[in-house]
C-alpha cells in the first residue's frame, strides 16, 4: 500500500467515525429529549412545588460537572445522561404550570417548543451541511456566558424587568451560537464522545426553550 492509499484509507476512516458520532449523538439526543418531555409532563401533572426547579438544576449540575466526565467513556454514562435529562425535564414542571395557567398558556408553551425545534434543526442543519469550522467562536461564547451569569446574579437583587428580558434575548443568541459551535465540533473532530456531544446540544436546546418561553411570556402581554 503506498502513501496515497494509506492517506485515503485514513480519510475514509475519519469520515466514517464522524458520521457514526453524528448519528449516535442525534439518536441519543432524540431519546433524551423524549425522556425529558415525559418527566416534564409527569411533574406538570404532579404540580410539584417551585423549588423543584432549583433542586433539579443543582442535582443535574453536580452530575454534569462531577459524574458525567468520569463515566462518559463507559455504558454507565448512558444512565447518567438519562438521569441528568430526566431531572432537568422534571424541574421544568413548575415553570410550565406557571405559563399554562395563563389564558394563552398552552399556545405560549407550544410556540416556544415548536420555535426551539425549528431553530435547533435549522442551525444544526446549517452547521452540518456548510461544514464550516465555528471553533473560532469558542472564547467569545464562553465570555458571553460569563457576562450572562453576572447579569443574572445582578438580576437577583435588582428588580428590573427589562434586565430579565435582555438576559433572555442574549441567552437565545448565545445558545444559537453554541448550537453552531457544538455541531461544528462534532464535524471537525473537536468532540469525539457522543455522550458529551449529546449533553452539550441538550443543554443548548433546554436553555433555548426556557428563555424563548420567558421572552414570549413577557412580550405576549398576558402576565
Amino acid at each position: 500500500m503506498n502513501r496515497l492509499d494509506i492517506s485515503a484509507a485514513r480519510s475514509v476512516e475519519s469520515v466514517l467515525s464522524t458520521n457514526k458520532l453524528i448519528k449516535n449523538t442525534y439518536m441519543l439526543l432524540s431519546m433524551t429529549l423524549l425522556f425529558s418531555a415525559l418527566t416534564a409532563t409527569a411533574s406538570v401533572f404532579l404540580a410539584v412545588p417551585g423549588w423543584t426547579y432549583m433542586a433539579s438544576l443543582i442535582g443535574s449540575i453536580v452530575l454534569i460537572w462531577f459524574v458525567l466526565p468520569r463515566t462518559a467513556n463507559s455504558s454507565t454514562g448512558l444512565w447518567v445522561i438519562f438521569g441528568i435529562t430526566g431531572l432537568m425535564g422534571f424541574g421544568l414542571g413548575p415553570i410550565l404550570n406557571a405559563y399554562l395557567s395563563l389564558a394563552n398558556g398552552p399556545q405560549l408553551v407550544g410556540t416556544a417548543m415548536a420555535g426551539t425545534g425549528i431553530i435547533f434543526l435549522g442551525l444544526s442543519g446549517y452547521a452540518l451541511t456548510s461544514k464550516r469550522d465555528f471553533s473560532f467562536m469558542g472564547g467569545f461564547l464562553m465570555a458571553g456566558l460569563i457576562v450572562v451569569f453576572v447579569a443574572m446574579l445582578a438580576g437577583l437583587f435588582i428588580d428590573m424587568p427589562a434586565l430579565h428580558l435582555a438576559i433572555s434575548a442574549v441567552v437565545i443568541m448565545l445558545m444559537s451560537g453554541l448550537i453552531l459551535y457544538d455541531t461544528s465540533r462534532m464535524v471537525h473532530g473537536g468532540e469525539t464522545n457522543y455522550i458529551m456531544a449529546t449533553i452539550g446540544l441538550y443543554l443548548n436546546i433546554y436553555n433555548l426553550f426556557v428563555h424563548l418561553l420567558a421572552l414570549l411570556g413577557a412580550l405576549s402581554g398576558e402576565d
Binding site: 435549522g122 442551525l123 424563548l212
Partner: peptide, 24 residues
C-alpha cells in the same frame, strides 16, 4: 468571512423570534 457565516443564521434566528413574538 467566518463571522459573516455566523451572523447570517443568527439574523434569521432574530427574525424568527420576532415573528414568534408577533404570533402570541
Amino acid at each position: 468571512g467566518d463571522w459573516q457565516a455566523v451572523l447570517l443564521p443568527l439574523a434569521f434566528v432574530v427574525g424568527f423570534v420576532v415573528l414568534l413574538i408577533m404570533m402570541v
